[in-house]
Amino acid sequence: MSERAKTPLIELHGLTKTYGAGDAAFQALKGIDLTIQQGEFVAIMGPSGSGKSTLMNVLGCLDAPTTGSYRYQGIAVGSLDTDQRSLLRRYALGFVFQGFNLLARTSSLENVELPLLYRGDSRKERHRKAVAALTSVGLATKLDSRPSELSGGQQQRVAIARAIVTEPGTLFADEPTGNLDSVTTRDIMELLTRLNQDRGITVLMVTHDDHVAATARRTVLIKDGLIESDLVRT
């Protein structure tokens, strides 16, 4: 086996995250140990206030841990500065949010091209990749539609296309179906599963819906800033 395969994709040791200081300090994560391998599909669950969103933000390099170590593909994320974390997100990570977070008054195509713009891809490359990504999420006919002209499920598909257009190693999905009805939820989960199985993209998903979580092969339950259970379906 190659060296890369042995290195876990994500490796957390004693990770804590504290907000504020002094009396007002609040410890959202109290010491997380977690290892995730390339290609996994992990659901992170927990009641609100459990710290699962904080964990997601730290894993997604949007936030830095207070103490403990976080290695992403062997890179010590804790020692990166804001800009380096930005670059890591740009080249290795993709994000899907509960509220879709598409740019308003902007076509699907332009929304999906956005991350490529920051990577400095040429206009032709951007167009080709964005069309391919939108096609792979089943929106080949909605290239010029603006978010306001799309249904919730379609908007989330655009968001997924935007997340995968850079061919990231990991896709972070924060309550991706939180705003969707059950039929659309199933479609989106099928799409995520397909991306995970066909393309080998690691998917980390925060959810509070057991049905949604059941799609994932592994479920991590967070409670009061600690991992309460970590189950892998067989």
């Binding site: 997604g60 949007l62 804001t82 800009d83 930005s86 670059l87 997100r89 740009r90 080249y91 990570l93 994000f95 977070n101 598409l102 740019l103 308003a104 956005l114 991350p115 920051y118 990577r119 935007r162």
Partner: peptide
């Protein structure tokens, strides 16, 4: 603000 958040999340640096 939200748009800026999106740009930062998908990898724009503060400088950009």
């Amino acid at each position: 603000t939200r748009e800026i958040g999106i740009r930062l999340a998908i990898g724009a640096t503060a400088r950009e």
